[in-house]
Nucleic acid binder design. Sequence first.
DNA 1: GTTTCGGTTCTTTTT
DNA 2: GAACCGAAAC
Length: 648
Amino acid sequence: MEGQRIDYAAELNAEQQAAVTAPDGPVLVIAAAGTGKTRTLVYRVAYLVEGGHDPNSILLLTFTNRAAQEMLERARGLVGGAVSGLWGGTFHHMANRLLRRHAAAVGYQSDYTILDSDDARRLVRHCSQDLKLTDKHFPKPDVLLSLFGLAASTEQPVVALAEDRFEYSKVEPDDVVAVHEAYEERKRRLNAMDFDDLLTNGLRLLVSNPDLCERYRQQFGHILVDEYQDTNPVQAHWVDLLTGPGGNVLVVGDDFQSIYSWRGADYRNIITFPERYPNAHVYYLVTNYRSVPEILHMANACIAGNPKQFQKTLQAVREPHERPHCVALQDGHHQADFIIQEARRLRAEGYRYSEMVVLYRAHYHAMELQMALSRDQTIPYVITSGIRFFEQGHIKDVCALLRLLANPGDELAFQRLCCLWKRLGPKTALKIWKGLGGRCDLRKDATRERVAQGLPAPAREGWNTVEMIAADFDRHELAKDPGEIIHRFMAGFYEDYARETFENAERRLEDLNELMRYTTNFPTLDAFLSEMALQTNLDAEAEVAAQQQEDVLRLSTVHQAKGLEWKVVFLCWVADGMFPTTRAVNESEEGLAEERRLFYVAITRAKDALYLCVPRQRRGRDGTIQYLSPSAFIQELSPDLMSVVAGG
DNA sequence: GTTTCGGTTCTTTTT
DNA sequence: GAACCGAAAC
């Protein structure tokens, strides 16, 4: 492979080739669904490397870990080892890499902890409680966090968003601001950043240190950005700064597939790209190799109504096959039965289960199907659950010890660790923490003695294991072997604890063994912890890998299905109130437009066959039956775009 | 004063 | 599940 020149004209179509071989300077590639967006990016990387550019000077930014991994692998397949040295990863990943080096420039120590959403939630809860904002009507941590996050990623003040959001409720915007300030202060004190801080501090680093910014501009001669329509203002600003005037930046995206506005993504970044970079070259990819024309007709029709977008129509190249099916069903149970039967029928026809997928708007929409599948026992399936691998209780328990060893200021880790011991709860843990002066460096003998003195007798047992690990920490260079720490902690304490505490202890212990294997990929404890915090989706990715080998039916949210494709797609609950969700519709016109884009994403995942399942009723939480109309997205489509089937 | 236990309720989407 | 609340147990 290596050394062999790539024949771009033979391997790419004319649209793709034009984008891949675009001249230097700013480039915008509008790539509709299934038109070879990833292929184009990967070949662009190869083109640059073949053109003599040092891979070290190329920065490839993606949105998800999965995309980063896939592209690096494919690039390696094209140009071989020459690609190593390429800077590739998610925005968060890159920001973290820069911030570890220059943490002091934004007022942090370089061993800062990255808070996952669960940590952030706990911290905000503490802040609300400290401020005595415990009223039933005061917004919950999740609501507050999404507001803080939106403020951070759109560079808006919290107070403005709070006034807007709570306009018709009794919530005082000032109280929300107070919690926000307390939260910011506590993160500083803990030497911790949440996901948004990585981005905002990454931006601040470049804004307030022009010399540093210039240095990285020199370093990155070429910047490539995937899924540009999903960037938020902070990310876009960061890319702009790193590119600099006259720099080379190539962004790829599809405004039709912008589905992350709820966390600050702004598709205006892509719409206004030609204005921000007036000499930008713009390329369109609209030839779709993925889907049969009937599916593309529906996709084109469904999205056409959305305003303010780069108008483009997917061009089919495949032969006509069959129209998407619109299946009327009585309720969720009938829907589940229908999917199971139809999947089995298709299987008999020659499709593998791994070539089919069941998609839905929200995780809980899969409940009936999940139950039916586990009762049925004939179709192997995986579900990308709502809880992330690294946010499960047992993983976080074990990692609390690692985190405290890495960052002695990590109060959350200390709390979590202490609450594992018998007869030791949050109150006592806080007392000990305060007694230590807000810092617990377990490597120091004096610290360990002080902790030991504060413990109730039954807690000693668990503590002894930690004490021994901490005492050996420097002597045995455990900082270079996080797996060994986990192993010792489990052998000495956690295995017994898990068996006493969890119904499904064995499964959880298996997870921990898996975690131990995973640590071998990392040279140090710090490297492992950084990566772990940013790999929120490890389980989903493992399942994708497993699915490719085994014949397994996958159940997934539409969001998680983005960028993937299957021969057969079942879309569930295409009914009013479910998809689009009531919330989005109530919010604004823009909310509905985004739901429509999500619907578009779902449709365009399908290659051969698409089933839109429309249950007509649903049991409410009080047991009453709720009647549903078909989704507005179906009603606004011309009926001859689909074949109507009665199911069940 | 704290911790633990047993019930109830609620699930949008993710780095 | 897992967060929350109230009541029992240490």
